[in-house]
Design a protein around this nucleic acid. Structure first.
Lengths: 258, 258
DNA sequence: CTTTTGAATTAGACACATCTAATTCTGTTC
DNA sequence: GAACAGAATTAGATGTGTCTAATTCAAAAG
């Protein structure tokens, strides 16, 4: 059996791989799990022994198929829990993350099944992140772009919001911006804040807040509900995102922000 | 912060104190938590340093007020979870224990509050054990006696069923005997099996199964529902239990079988 | 090709929870 | 009251996950 801690490392590696592709740097993992680099090195050795990762010394680390499956299962637990807490225990979308982090390692397969069943196999959690299926294939969120890659005049719908920073979530909850919210982009300052229209209001979002929002275009007559933003639609192709912020690029579309 | 493991020790000590009163023997704790005696000794030293227990070397251990409060909180978590799983996630009463054991250390205060709220501050879990209040005072189950202390002809209602042994729970679930079930005692073999009537059936319960059942008399016109067996009633006095099985006595009535 | 620099690893230590084996204590039996 | 039996503790070791300090490496810059 893998410990909770090992699962946390695997989850972190999975997320980083999803965002920037393998191989994953030790320092990146260290930052995510909030441990020192030597600690991470030694854990990576353990995980390698357990067949969860492969690595090249001084180069980087990559998940094995097995390690990836474990990571996806943890993420499924996390997102099912977030969704359950929001829908059945009256948690708001900016409160669920911490609780889910604490519980995700301790629920049984049976619990997972039953939660998924009462939720009717949900496709996305309250942050808009896609929930991996019970078969644990890598979830593919629909194509989305960072809000910062939009340009003035765009009408877009919020697809997902990073669950990493509590302050930003609270800010957005307060601003009435949640997955599914349709907004108009008024102004995008390079590397800076983004001014948007939400309903009748106009809001200026600080950079860190803007960076946590990913969006899809609001056009294709698809004003459907937020839970379906990530559903099918493998057809819809890339949203225009001129190369101004190419360094901030987004090779994921796998929605791994656990 | 106390570790999960420490909480498990405190819970075990609390249960033993409830069953046999302090001081608690190291070997008893060792058996409950399934560790060796030296391991327990060293943990008890730690818990003493933390102010959770007091002890006299070679004699025994006792919870401090603080240790007791921690234990009661863990037990509250456990029983709220058991109840929630049974009522909202379709678990049967003999499945809930293991899941609750895994989760009880990891839920937040907030989670505890919300679960208690949606359950409407339940008084007893699916096994019939009383759920400590949010104020964490020691729960007092109403007076109950072991089934083995009854005699032929008694009509009684099952108050609670030990959650310690899965096999016995499954047996009882199969036999249709759950908290709230009214049964007639046909025959009590000294130190042996108990024959009872349940509805129209007659059943012979093996000793271990009979030992896990605690009952109250079915008389006082109180055919109320099982959840209220433990409610108020500090008035009703001791049930007749002649001293045949006095060694198997039951000084608890605090319902500590977490 | 050498140097530099920042990242990664190795070295060595520590806290925690656990074990087995050896010792010490307590309460009981003769 | 001496001896014994059983329980508890002490002694010493192990595995895991973590740290800081020292070293080694690789990739970039000269």
């Amino acid at each position: 059996m893998l410990s909770d801690v090992m699962e946390d490392y695997l989850k972190a590696i999975y997320v980083i791989e999803s965002e920037s592709g393998p191989p994953v740097a030790t320092s990146e993992i260290a930052e995510r799990v909030d441990k020192t680099a030597p600690t991470v090195t030694s854990m990576l050795e353990t995980l390698e022994d357990r067949g969860m990762v492969t690595r090249e010394k001084y180069k980087g680390t990559e998940l094995t198929a097995e390690g990836r499956t474990v990571a996806i299962e943890v993420i499924r637990h996390h997102r099912l829990l977030e969704t359950y807490l929001a829908e059945h225990l009256d948690y708001s979308w900016d409160e669920v993350h911490e609780e889910a982090d604490a519980l995700e390692h301790h629920i049984s397969e049976e619990f997972e099944r039953r939660v998924a069943e009462v939720l009717d196999e949900p496709q996305a959690d309250p942050h808009g992140d896609p929930i991996p299926s019970a078969e644990l294939e890598p979830p593919t969120g629909g194509p989305t772009v960072p809000l910062s890659a939009c340009e003035s005049g765009d009408r877009i719908v919020v697809a997902r919001v990073s669950d990493r920073r509590d302050e930003d979530l609270a800010y957005l909850a307060d601003a009435g911006i949640t997955p599914g919210t349709t907004i108009s982009v008024r102004d995008v300052a390079p590397f800076g804040m983004v001014t948007v229209g939400v309903g009748d209001d106009e809001q200026s979002l600080p950079e860190s807040v803007a960076a946590s929002i990913h969006v899809t275009p609001a056009d294709h007559a698809d004003e459907a509900n937020a839970d379906e933003v990530h559903a099918g639609e493998a057809d819809s192709d890339e949203v225009h995102a001129d190369e101004a912020n190419a360094d901030e690029a987004d090779p994921d579309a796998t929605g791994a922000g656990a």
